[in-house]
């Protein structure tokens, strides 16, 4: 089965909707991954709307090593930890495009983890290219372009499913990021990668298009390639996520699991 046939063997559901707060976003990713893992929900593509700014750190990052908590608090930025690995990022309402794919493991069966990143974001690279951006996938997990990095993905293989989520910069405030996220010197020491490849090139700067237009174009590209039906969150999924946001993703115990 080739790549496109793999995608086409599912009836993909689309979720878009109301802005949600950062802990609830984290919780919803876990709940929906579980639902797809048990078969209670069809494979799903979800586009996020953020109701508040957040620093989202990776599952394996040390809180204090990565985030200046005082600066974050001063700027009214919530710090949350997601269930996937990868690096810290700053998200602000209207300034990023974030989506999650919740898929059965069979979608990426036989691929290395590294191959699966590029595979699961191939429709995005296609969509960006058709907007005139010279975009490509930069292993392990970056969507980049001639002008600079656009976004990054992270995965978890858990609860019988694959969670793959990606955040792309639409209109990032470049001054703010280094104030709240610590970037070590060692991180910048990778001589194999030209510094330009690490420069962030937000989509607004590259397209002059409204965020909504780009998001609609992404959704249309997914629908054309893989098929997509309008879906929605079930009330019990939201309820479960609210509980998990309260008990886990808002808790210091989880956020500081690696202090």
């Amino acid at each position: 089965m080739n790549g496109r046939e793999r995608w086409r063997s599912y009836r993909w559901q689309l979720i878009t909707g109301e802005p949600l707060d950062p802990p609830l976003q984290m919780a919803l990713d876990e709940v929906l991954t579980r639902r797809v893992g048990t078969g209670a929900r069809a494979p799903t593509l979800r586009f996020w709307e953020w109701s508040a700014p957040a620093v989202v750190i990776g599952r394996f990052q040390s809180l204090r090593n990565e985030v200046d908590l005082e600066e974050a608090a001063r700027h009214g930025i919530t710090v949350v930890r997601r269930i996937t690995g990868g690096g810290a990022m700053l998200t602000e309402p209207g300034r990023v495009i974030t989506y999650s794919i919740y898929a059965p493991p069979e979608l990426v069966a036989g691929m290395s983890f590294q191959e699966s990143y590029a595979f699961l974001d191939a429709w995005v690279v296609e969509a960006l290219r058709s907007l005139g951006i010279d975009a490509w996938y930069q292993p392990i997990n970056d969507i980049t372009s001639a002008q600079g990095k656009i976004g990054g993905a992270a995965q978890a293989r858990r609860y019988g499913a694959v969670l793959h989520h990606t955040t792309m910069a639409y209109d990032i405030d470049p001054e703010k990021v280094p104030r709240v996220i610590r970037i070590g010197r060692e991180k910048l020491s990778d001589k194999g990668i030209p510094s330009a490849a690490r420069r962030v090139a937000p989509l607004r700067q590259q397209t002059n298009l409204p965020r909504e237009t780009i998001q609609e174009h992404l959704i249309r590209t997914f629908a054309d390639r893989h098929g997509l039906e309008e879906g929605s969150l079930h009330p019990d999924e939201i309820e479960e996520a609210r509980e998990l946001a309260r008990t886990k993703f808002s808790s210091w115990e989880w956020t500081a699991i690696l202090p």
Binding site: R59, A156, R158
Partner: peptide, 12 residues
């Protein structure tokens, strides 16, 4: 000993 970073690891 605490090991941390922006890597990926399964299971966590």
């Amino acid at each position: 000993v605490q090991v941390s970073g922006d890597f990926f690891l399964e299971p966590p």
